[in-house]
Design a protein around this nucleic acid. Structure first.
Lengths: 195, 195
DNA sequence: CGGCCCATGTAAATAGTTACATGATTAA
DNA sequence: TTAATCATGTAACTATTTACATGGGCCG
């Protein structure tokens, strides 16, 4: 279970309550990763039962009480063992990334669409990607100028690089479809055009 | 449910039986996407009940019988509607890709590891990535020389480009860690805001 | 006052994995 | 003869999503 490790990872930086794990001030991983209440709260309970984390309830007069969770020794051990181990770092099988990307997935079947429809789809995706790059670049510059730690800057950098690669490819796709589309293939061998 | 659409997409190319969807000759998407029997067979049954696909049993003397599924009009309609629609093509939220990538995920916490351990991890990942690139390049060249349709070539191309970007970044990471490592001993307090 | 943010949860459904079960053909 | 491949499936479990339920505080 990976969500478990994300929670442990978050709690390695100090205690946090459920809501803050999703949207609070600590590391916003869970929130931005899109965990939902229906999974988070039961999982916190289970991890407590398993002895990986423990909680103290913070009774507050203004606002609802908070259940502050902190990582236990067992949890820390589990986390480090996960971090050290090589599990999940194996080579991706060929089309793994396609399945994880709905747009890419759809691209597999673009030949069932009119050419114009494909181009429209690709252009929309180009716009999305450009916006995302912009967002990442802003975060990247901001983190750099504020002297954030290199590790986190590098991770944002990777996200940015990835989106830039995506944009490059999308533009190739657009060109491809504008030159008659890749659907009617084979006969004309323009094999040498791409590297 | 996305697996449903993958099955519909596969059947858009013509009928197939369960086993061939996983490992057969057509598009090996499902097999390479890693679907498992426990999901595939019940899903095929459900989709049949829902009227998206239909089956004919092919009784064979040599070898087990095959349940050949074909897409129905309702299934075709559902598929085209999914393909045309924009659902799932929205902009990725910031750390989506990290969560989908166990290695990246671990990278977030590399500061809890000894520098040497991090470098080792990164180098192993570099080796994996180089092997993957090699694999993609071979597939790409092969598909090109055999006159495959452009669409599928382009998709393999994207996979390749992505891995190349990954390699680039991994090498940056390696350098980063060799130059003392990005693990600052200094301000950890500002970690919170952006990430 | 109405709606959003904070903060906790539960219930029900869907999705996906792992393990098991069967039985025939084919290749080493 | 043993193992792998072909081909189907079920059962039990785990993971995830969606929807609901609660209640105080804050803002316009």
């Amino acid at each position: 279970m990976s969500t478990k490790h994300i929670i442990l990872g978050a709690l390695m930086n100090g205690p946090a309550h459920g809501y803050s794990l999703k949207s609070g001030s600590a590391i916003k991983v869970l929130g931005e990763f899109g965990i939902n209440d229906g999974q988070l709260y039961p999982l916190l309970k289970k991890m407590t039962d398993d002895g990986l984390i423990a909680k103290e309830i913070e009774y507050r007069e203004s606002g609802p009480n908070r259940h502050n969770y902190h990582i236990t020794d067992a949890g820390r051990k589990e986390f480090i063992s996960w971090l050290t181990g090589a599990e999940g770092e194996e080579r991706a099988f060929r089309y793994e990334m396609i399945r994880k990307d709905e747009f890419l997935n759809k691209c597999m079947y673009l030949r069932f669409l009119e050419n114009a429809g494909s181009v429209e789809k690709i252009r929309k995706q180009i716009a999305e990607t450009e916006a995302t790059i912009d967002d990442f670049r802003k975060a990247y510059d901001n983190m750099n100028s504020r002297g954030f730690d290199r590790l986190h800057i590098m991770i944002v950098r990777y996200c940015m690089m990835n989106q830039e690669t995506r944009l490059l490819w999308l533009k190739e796709m657009e060109t491809e479809f504008l030159n008659n589309g890749p659907v009617e293939k084979k006969k004309k061998k323009k094999l040498n055009r791409m590297i």
